[in-house]
Design a protein around this nucleic acid. Structure first.
Length: 196
DNA sequence: TGTGCGATCCACT
DNA sequence: GTGGATCGCACAC
């Protein structure tokens, strides 16, 4: 029986966790019992004292989940349209997280295509943070605060092996403050990465 | 109580 | 390559 990555994984340095999450398997179980999954191929780290971090200015009802224990999902809504999936890292109260930006679909590709509402190439299903939450049917009300370490959880990160790959470190996307910090990581050459 | 803007995506040029 | 959609939150008044 394979178990999810343990809570301890999320207690290491958040940038290290962001790097090591590349190649791991994000698994989503639907209420129907159907399983959707994808390999994590792109992440970004958001740290305390990081001006781009939602928690930079202190705790609010919106970002409260980031201040909670590590190993749970922080799902939030932005641009009036999109959901973002983050994994909370560092000890309770620290408020650091890893943004999951892209997946390579593995299981449940037909269901993902339905959730995305169109005939799309497989790599188009989850090659962006707003797209992958839609493909996996993640919502703020339903999944914010969900454990990702509990084997019975609807959403969890499973240890996974993929062929050796090169990790690219670069600057983060879509932010104005702290934009110069090289805390975005992706699998070089993977077609599902959101943007070069 | 009002206003500005954001860790984006997609259609259209 | 560019701009519109669209809404919750933070902060100013």
């Amino acid at each position: 029986m394979v178990t999810p990555l343990p809570t301890e994984f999320y207690l290491q340095d958040t940038r290290e966790a962001a790097k090591k999450l590349l190649g791991q398997l994000l698994v989503r179980t639907l209420p129907t019992g159907e399983t959707l999954s994808g390999v994590i191929v792109e992440t970004e780290a958001y740290l305390r004292d990081d001006p781009a971090c939602h928690a930079y200015k202190g705790q609010t009802p919106r970002n409260a989940m980031m201040f909670g224990p590590p190993g749970q999902a922080y799902v939030y809504f932005t641009y009036g349209l999109h959901m973002m999936l983050n994994l909370v890292c560092a000890p309770t109260g620290t408020a650091e997280a890893v943004l999951i930006r892209a997946l390579e679909p593995v299981d449940g590709i037909d269901a993902m295509r339905l959730n995305r509402g169109g005939i799309l190439e497989t790599k188009q299903l989850t090659n962006g943070p707003g797209k992958l939450t839609q493909a996996l049917a993640l919502t703020r009300l339903g999944h914010n605060g969900l454990s990702i370490t509990d084997p019975a959880s609807e959403l969890r990160v499973m240890p996974h092996e993929i062929p050796p790959f090169e990790t690219v470190e670069t600057t983060r996307i879509g932010i104005s403050r702290g934009a110069e910090l090289p805390w975005r990581y992706y699998v070089r050459g993977n077609g599902c990465v959101s943007r070069k």
